[in-house]
Design a protein around this nucleic acid. Structure first.
Lengths: 182, 182
DNA sequence: ACCTGAACACCGTTCAAGT
DNA sequence: ACCTGAACACCGTTCAAGT
């Protein structure tokens, strides 16, 4: 990659991070290009779709999500608390930029999405947590990790979409109770 | 309302129902106007926002949702089955038009939304089911009807957003297990 | 090889003119 | 009182011209 291309790529990404934080992942791409000081075509060259741009920003937090999974597994806390903490962290991460959670919900089961691979990384992290729960005999029979992922992402999406400042904890508690062995 | 106004109103609604069924609730409003044979301004006069249009179509299914709640309460089936059936019906109704579920998630906690009132009707129906569960001593302590509503709408939204033809049943089973007394 | 920005297409929304 | 449709604004996307 040529030096100026690299510089533009980085500038676009940094600007997108700011704009997405301010106004969410549905902000005008034109505004990002303008604020980054590049032509619209340059943005499209580097990021052909909005999802590709969101995907590039996701890198930061897929790492953190993976680390959170390990922390959750390693904890001595009761299964219920462990799960609740893990879910809350997960929701916090994917709702960092408004609109991201629902894009993740859509990408999760769509291999054609640019965000699919990173969704898989997060999905794998979640599966490790659920597998661990299973290994300690605390997973309710019939619960599937992929559906847990969808469910928790759904909670994130609801909180993200809502105008009100929702507390996701009560919803996550129901999910947790539905997952741990009765 | 003048006769021609009434006729246009009905024609727009009927067309919107068709277009929303074909292409979801984010279809072009201009296309609806064109296919209904009215000017764009006429559509906006009757339905100032897209949500107002969706809201008008919701009338059909809020009635059905309310009826479903009564059926659920009256059934002799075990609490778990009763709840699962109720949730499945609810999801079916609000995912009738693609994109509707997430709009409902957003409107549910936003009194300023045109759809708010109808969300309340559905919320009340759900509360009656949850109250009934509580009355028979089968509700897990601490579970709140409003959060159940948000959770199930979230499941609907995930299914609606997803490209894959998701089966919502496994997700709803987790929710049900989290709601009924352990 | 990469960048620019004008040009195009599409859509929501408004409003002056018409009935 | 209501309707029409041209006009405007905004935004995503492309591409010819430039470096």
């Amino acid at each position: 990659m040529r030096a100026d291309a690299r510089r533009n790529y980085d500038k676009i990404l940094a600007t997108a991070r700011i704009v997405f934080t301010e106004r969410g992942t549905d902000s005008s791409l034109d505004e990002i290009a303008k604020r980054a000081g590049v032509g619209a075509g340059t943005l499209y060259r580097h990021f052909p779709t909005r999802e590709a741009l969101v995907d590039a920003l996701m890198q930061d937090w897929t790492d953190r999500v993976a680390a959170d999974a390990d922390t959750a597994i390693a904890t001595e806390a009761p299964a219920r608390d462990m799960l609740l903490g893990w879910f809350e962290n997960f929701v916090d991460h994917i709702t960092l930029h408004r609109g991201a959670a629902s894009k993740i919900c859509a990408a999760m089961d769509d291999p054609a999405s640019p965000m699919y691979r990173k969704c898989r990384v997060m999905g794998d992290a979640n599966r490790r947590v659920i597998d661990h729960l299973d290994a300690t005999g605390e997973l309710r029979p019939g619960v599937d990790a992929a559906n847990v992922m969808r469910l928790v992402s759904g909670v994130a999406s609801v909180a993200d979409t809502s105008r009100a400042e929702l507390d996701v904890r009560p919803m996550l508690e129901v999910v947790v109770d539905g997952i741990v062995r009765a």
